[in-house]
C-alpha cells in the first residue's frame, strides 16, 4: 500500500480521540466517586477493612495508612504518608521495605485499572492479578526479611 502522511495523521488522530472518549467516560465519574468516598467517610471505613492485610503481611498498624493511601491514590501519595510516618519513627526497616514492595507492584488501582479497561483489558484479570501478586510477593519478602533487621524497630531513618 502506498504510504500517505495525510492518511496516517487522520488515522492516528482518530484512534487517539476515540480512545480518549472511552477513557473520559470512565475517568470523570471515577474521580467524582473517589472524592465522594473521601468526604463521606467511606475511605476511613475502607482503611479499617484492611486490618487483615496488615496481619497477612506482618506489618505494623502504622504502615497500613501509607499502604492503603498508595493502593488507592497512587505511589507518590503513599510514599508521602510513609515518609511522614518514617520521620516520626513509627516504621521499622521491614515495614518500609514491605510497603515499598507492595506499592511498587500495585498502586492507584482504580485509575490505572480503569484506564486500561477503557481500551479493552479484562477487569477481573487486571485487578485480580495485580492484587494477588503484590500480596504474595510482599508476604514472601516479609517472611524472608533478615531477622536481625527486626530489632531496628522505631528507628527514625535518615532521608536524603
Amino acid at each position: 500500500m502506498e504510504f500517505s502522511l495525510l492518511n496516517a495523521v487522520i488515522d492516528g488522530l482518530g484512534a487517539g480521540i476515540m480512545g480518549l472518549k472511552n477513557i473520559a467516560l470512565i475517568v470523570l465519574p471515577l474521580m467524582v466517586v473517589i472524592e465522594l468516598a473521601k468526604d463521606s467517610g467511606v475511605m476511613q471505613w475502607v482503611t479499617g477493612k484492611f486490618q487483615s492485610l496488615a496481619a497477612l503481611l506482618q506489618i505494623s498498624k502504622e504502615s497500613l495508612l501509607p499502604l492503603v493511601v498508595g493502593l488507592i491514590a497512587g505511589i507518590a501519595f503513599g510514599s508521602g504518608v510513609l515518609i511522614n510516618a518514617t520521620r516520626e519513627g513509627y516504621l521499622s526497616k521491614k515495614d518500609r521495605y514491605v510497603v515499598a514492595v507492595f506499592l511498587n507492584l500495585c498502586h492507584s488501582v482504580f485509575e490505572d485499572t480503569l484506564l486500561l479497561v477503557a481500551v479493552g483489558a479484562s477487569l477481573p484479570w487486571l485487578l485480580g492479578s495485580r492484587l494477588v501478586l503484590a500480596t504474595v510477593v510482599a508476604m514472601l519478602v516479609t517472611r524472608l526479611f533478615p531477622k536481625h533487621s527486626l530489632d531496628t524497630q522505631s528507628q527514625p531513618v535518615e532521608l536524603s
Binding site: 504510504f3 500517505s4 495523521v9 492516528g12 488522530l13 484512534a15 487517539g16 480512545g19 484506564l115
Partner: peptide, 17 residues
Amino acid sequence: LAKVVIPVTLVITVLKE
C-alpha cells in the same frame, strides 16, 4: 492523557503505515 496520547498515536500510526 490527551497531551501524551494524541502525539504518541500519531507517531505510532505513521510508523505502522
